[in-house]
Nucleic acid binder design. Structure first.
Lengths: 193, 193
DNA sequence: CGTCTATTTGAATGTACTCAAAAGCGGTGG
DNA sequence: CCACCGCTTTTGAGTACATTCAAATAGACG
């Protein structure tokens, strides 16, 4: 399966596509390689692209007034990533998106995406469904954060995303779950027994 | 402005509509009245509708394993409400949606919405934009919850949504912001000085 | 191997919670 | 129109969960 076929396969989870549509999609995305620790989105710059991860791992985070990093999202193979608030509204980003590993992504720029959506009803549908799914995903996270204890959130995460757990630094996971890295360390040592 | 004109005005914030499109939209929505304390969505039942609030106020909440209520969303005039996870995927709801006041809403059922979207590119665009906006909204909430203290979250809320603050019971606001009603009471008395 | 970054451990502290009871408020019926 | 009932908010005292700051240890990478 080529890199672009992975993207098409991903879209075809939502809708079926004609040969012509597949070609138009493919020509709208660029394949790029991103080295570990490299930033693809930075605060104060407008996020010009949306990224589909083919290989590797990324992390979106914000830095609070107190200087603490808070992880907003992880992305591994088959996930999308960007600062969506910045990308969707084409406003300056407030987040960092950084590669956690040497990675390969397919990127689409804002203007190309707009053209795809406005020119073709099916493409519009795809992006509508993607947005709906991410709304549902975020709502689930809000609910988890409101209703579960730190320990429950950790257990839920490692069960749901075992592939992410052992692939990202602990402090990024702690900051995603909403507590400190020291606390996660203690939690893990407690759970080991 | 009639009830339906409010809905059209809302949609025209996203796109402009032809006379014919306006009529199709209008005929897809039903006007209903909901009494205070009445539920329009309940756990285990599929949320068949999406609701646009014309007058009144609603609250979406979940009940945790420990029996505590956690407010997920408020909706007043011009806001949409439902259990979206249930509505979008047509799966059993996990949330309650209840009227906080005697209210008037415009409702659309799932099948009608699907027909609107599939038959007309512009309608698809509207719902895509709505979903994108709600993704951005939820992400902002996640960030606030991760990065701000209880007091900051409260201050941010009353500044952003003064019209909601004085209209809903305190315990619903506390549970939205992620702390207890006792804590909010103490916080308010502290801030009064 | 040495340096830089990430994780672990310790001790003291604070923020927000729990449980219990009192006070306040709003709606309803006599 | 007042009295009562139920629900919401306030106040108090004790407690727990998670944080902070500091230092030690472990691991990754050139």
């Amino acid at each position: 399966m080529t890199e672009y076929e992975k993207l098409i396969a991903h879209f075809e989870k939502y809708v079926s596509l004609s040969k012509d549509e597949k070609e138009r999609l493919i020509s709208s995305f660029n394949l790029i390689k991103v080295k570990k620790r490299q930033f693809i989105v930075q605060p104060n710059f407008v996020a010009k692209h949306r990224y589909f991860v083919l290989k590797g791992a990324f992390r979106t985070y914000v830095v609070s007034n107190e200087g603490e990093e808070h992880t907003i999202q992880f992305a591994i193979e088959d996930w999308w990533i960007s600062d969506y608030n910045s990308y969707i509204f084409q406003q300056p980003a407030t987040m960092f998106v950084v590669a956690l590993e040497n990675s390969t992504v397919l990127q689409i720029d804002y203007t190309s995406e707009q053209k795809l959506k406005s020119s073709n009803h099916t493409f519009e549908t795809i992006f509508r469904m993607m947005a709906e799914r991410s709304t549902a995903f975020m709502q689930r996270r809000i609910i988890t954060n409101l209703t579960k204890s730190a320990e429950e959130r950790y257990n839920e995460f490692i069960e749901k995303y075992p592939s992410i757990t052992n692939r990202v630094p602990q402090y990024t996971l702690a900051s995603y779950l909403g507590f400190t890295t020291e606390f996660l360390s203690r939690l893990r040592s407690r759970l080991r027994k």
